[in-house]
Nucleic acid binder design. Structure first.
Length: 188
DNA sequence: GGTGTGATCGTA
DNA sequence: ACGATCACACCA
């Protein structure tokens, strides 16, 4: 298990997003495999938080690839992105679902409303609860403990499923969501 | 199985 | 005012 190659993360978000399928996210011993992602770009993507230029909230998106952009939404939830692309393009990949691997008992403690394993990480805010990811990791280098983006040698799926992104009011025409076909942990 | 709605508050 | 969401109620 090694950190995901930083140079690979520096490519366009539409390449990096499907590349991140089957990579591993870990917070300490609590880990899961990425099974669903969405690509976001900056100035040309009306669905992106960065569309209208940098703000205090989005400043880490305008920084280097390989860092976490963690944002607060709907007054109660956190969601986690990997900053990708050439520096300054404000691109990111939203991690939308994980297949739980390690620390599943801890995930159930953090998500008491989950009844089955597939309820633990089948959504961007759910997986942040399960992994105890919140605003303290905004701007965190994902090659450093305790929150890591790892490559265990599993390749991305040869033919991931593709769809429009979820939960947006703008940018709905862009097919920038990728997921592992048939995985029970994929959201909704 | 599917659809509709309330919660809750930082951001712009 | 609205949101890169979730959980639960309700209907089928």
């Amino acid at each position: 298990m090694i950190p995901v190659d930083r140079a690979a993360l520096g490519r366009d978000a539409r390449e990096v997003a499907p590349y991140l399928l089957n990579k591993v996210v870990g917070h300490g011993a609590v880990t899961g495999r990425i099974v669903e992602v969405e690509a976001y770009r900056g100035s040309d993507d009306p669905g992106s938080h960065a569309y209208r230029g940098p703000t205090p909230r989005t400043q880490v998106m305008f920084g280097s690839a390989g860092f976490a952009y963690v944002y607060f939404t709907y007054g109660m939830y956190w969601c986690m992105n990997v900053v990708v692309g050439p520096e300054g393009t404000a691109s990111a990949v939203l991690i939308r679902a994980l297949a739980p691997i390690g620390g599943i008992d801890t995930m159930f403690e953090r998500r008491p409303k989950a009844h089955k394993t597939k309820d633990l990480c089948s959504g961007p805010a759910k997986l942040c609860q399960a992994l105890d990811v919140d605003g303290r990791f905004d701007g965190h280098d994902l090659a450093e403990d305790p929150l890591l983006l790892l490559d265990d040698g599993t390749p991305p799926p040869a033919e991931p499923s593709v769809s429009a992104r979820i939960g947006l009011s703008r940018g709905l025409d862009l097919p920038w969501r990728w997921y592992v076909s048939g995985d029970p942990n994929v959201s909704r």
